[in-house]
Design a protein around this nucleic acid. Sequence first.
DNA 1: GGAAGCTCCTGAAAGC
DNA 2: TGCTTTCAGGAGCTTC
Length: 291
Amino acid sequence: MPELPEVEVVRRGLARWIAGRTIAEVQVLHPRAVRRHADGGEDFSAVLKGHTLGEPQRRGKYLWIPLAGEGRSLLAHLGMSGQLLVRPETAPDEKHLRIRVRFADTADAAGGTELELRFVDQRTFGGLSLHPETADGLPDVIAHIARDPLDPAFDDDAFATALRRKRTTIKRALLDQSLISGVGNIYADEALWRARVHYERETAGFTRPRTAELLGHVRDVMNAALAQGGTSFDSLYVNVNGESGYFDRSLDAYGREDEPCRRCGTPIRRRPWMNRSSYFCPRCQRPPRAR
DNA sequence: GGAAGCTCCTGAAAGC
DNA sequence: TGCTTTCAGGAGCTTC
């Protein structure tokens, strides 16, 4: 499942392979993949044709590519299973290929092969769309998304203040992209395990030092995942070359139900939570007293 | 206005 | 073997 580290790995791949290239043709093969583009698939293809792509940018789990001189950007969200792949034109289509982008100038210096960009998405939660940019250079529809904890401009103090002001629980807050972006279910569980915090702890009780410690764990787990190319449990997350990351082998909590906690040996538990799952150590991460 | 819950979607895996 | 059910979850939308 693509979270911040996985999206960053994809962004770096796109920067290498498609920045500066000019679009010759766009094929929208599934309407749901462009459902966030208000004017529909035909308009999406027509607008992109002939434009040169700028340097890919990222905020949280969103990434976008500015269209040179347009004041607009191509915005991408991978959802649960989205992949942005750079493939030779001759490669067979993927089963869930949703959008194909061909370039006017794609000869690969290595072998003269023509490369194309493919958006592949099994579960169709992701998609591409075009949006005007705000004064900050962000696509307007993601102006509400907070900076992510790896962003040098992320304000730790402001986050601590906002967290205390919330009347919610810590995992909900970590997944609130308007508060802190880039954290999904996997890294939320991992950071909370490292911080020895139960996912149902109320945010109002978080002191600044405790918040600083938790942020440190969030950053640590994301940087570790980034260093290993991201997390992938199956073929649903890959980089632009179709390769999986290795961080799933380093997870301490997520996906380890009934396996011993790496700190104390107590079996990790899984609890249904908001139509998904939370993994935690019942000994290291004591649940709060019933309200 | 803020918080919580629902819904979209597909396919692998499990259960019968 | 084949059908049905369960599960995975990001984020926009609806409800309270």
